[in-house]
Structures are given as structure tokens and as C-alpha cells.
């Protein structure tokens, strides 16, 4: 038995229902594994808590995007209307701020939405066309009706045979190793 082989990404086990997945995730955490990931065909309620995931950064990035869009948008209109291209129309004020609100509003929404989408993709490191879990033949069911747990080889507790046996003990089907190429 070769331990920590470089071309092994981890061990993957398959589950039939979201309830079994959550139950298994709890056991995996109890057993002391930290470097593992769950895969599901739709967002499973309670899975994040079971995995002990922290709050993510998407809301903060969205807030920053929105503020940038809003402040930048208003500032830009002010610069155009009052500084670089002032038009004196009947002596009305150059900084006619109420007239700048619609565009400011739209740019706030635009900035926040762009930040939300691209922030989410960036944090998820997508696009990433290939990933070792795709090497597992049965993993194509992860986008239909099967739920997977992959315990990764970089986990300190990882041991190919023992981890595989452990997953089988959790009533996982088709436990198999994931090669890393």
C-alpha cells in the first residue's frame, strides 16, 4: 500500500438521498477529516451547516460593487455636468443632483450585480473546465440524482485504504479513488 501517492486526489463515495449525505458529512467531520467536499445536484438545505462552512464573501463583494457603482456614477455625472462640460441653461444650478438620481440608481444596481456574479465565479474558481472528480465515471450522476462526498488526499488523516473503508462504513455506494490527472 502506497500512502499519499501524488496522483491520488482523494476517495469518493456515493449516496442516494440528501438526508444520507448530510448524515455522512456529519460522520466524516466527527472522524476528524477536514479536507473534504460534498457534491449535490441541487443545493441541499443544512449541508453548509453540517460541513461547518463559514459565511461567504459574496455579500461583501456585492456591497462594495454597489457602492462603487453608485458613488462612481454620481461622481461622474457631477464631474460632467458641473466641471468638464457645464451648460448654463437659464442660470439653473450645474449640480442639479435630483436629475442625477436615476442614472446613479441604475449604476448602483449594475455595479452590485456584476460584483455578485463575477465575485461568485471568482471565489468558486470558475471557469475551471477540468477537475479531478470528473475522472470518476459515476460522478456524472452528481448533476442528476446522486450525492457524493470526496475526502481529499491532502487531509492529514487521509489513508487510501482506511478512508475508503471508512466511507463504505457510512453506507456509501461505489467508493472509488480519484486520480489526479
Amino acid at each position: 500500500m502506497i500512502l499519499h501517492r501524488s496522483h491520488i486526489y482523494g476517495v469518493v463515495g456515493e449516496f442516494e438521498t440528501p438526508e444520507k449525505l448530510i448524515h455522512a458529512v456529519e460522520k466524516v467531520r466527527e472522524a476528524g477529516y477536514r479536507r473534504f467536499e460534498a457534491y449535490s445536484p441541487f443545493p441541499v438545505e443544512g449541508l453548509s451547516q453540517a460541513m461547518g462552512l463559514k459565511r461567504n464573501l459574496v455579500p461583501l463583494i456585492t456591497l462594495i460593487g454597489g457602492l462603487t457603482g453608485g458613488i462612481g456614477g454620481f461622481g461622474f455625472q457631477y464631474w460632467v455636468a458641473a466641471i468638464t462640460y457645464p451648460l448654463n441653461i437659464g442660470g439653473r444650478p450645474f449640480n442639479s443632483w435630483p436629475a442625477f438620481i436615476p442614472v446613479t440608481f441604475e449604476l448602483t444596481i449594475l455595479g452590485a450585480s456584476l460584483a455578485a456574479v463575477f465575485g461568485m465565479l471568482a471565489l468558486n474558481k470558475l471557469p475551471q473546465p477540468h477537475h479531478p472528480v470528473f475522472n470518476v465515471h459515476r460522478f456524472s450522476h452528481a448533476s442528476t440524482d446522486r450525492f457524493f462526498i470526496c475526502i481529499e488526499s491532502r487531509d492529514a488523516k487521509f489513508h487510501l485504504a482506511e478512508t475508503a473503508r471508512f466511507l463504505q462504513g457510512l453506507e456509501a455506494h461505489h467508493v472509488s479513488e480519484v486520480s489526479d490527472d
Partner: peptide, 22 residues
């Protein structure tokens, strides 16, 4: 390269909810 990982879903759901709110 979407693979339905739980971490991805968590951020995805945040982004989707925020987009709905926006």
C-alpha cells in the same frame, strides 16, 4: 466546470439571492 460542490452552492445561493434582491 460546475460540479455542484457544497462550497460552490453556498456562494451560488448567496449570489442568486442578492441578484433577486437587486
Amino acid at each position: 466546470g460546475w460540479r455542484g460542490s457544497a462550497r460552490h452552492w453556498q456562494r451560488y445561493q448567496s449570489a442568486y439571492l442578492l441578484l433577486a434582491g437587486l
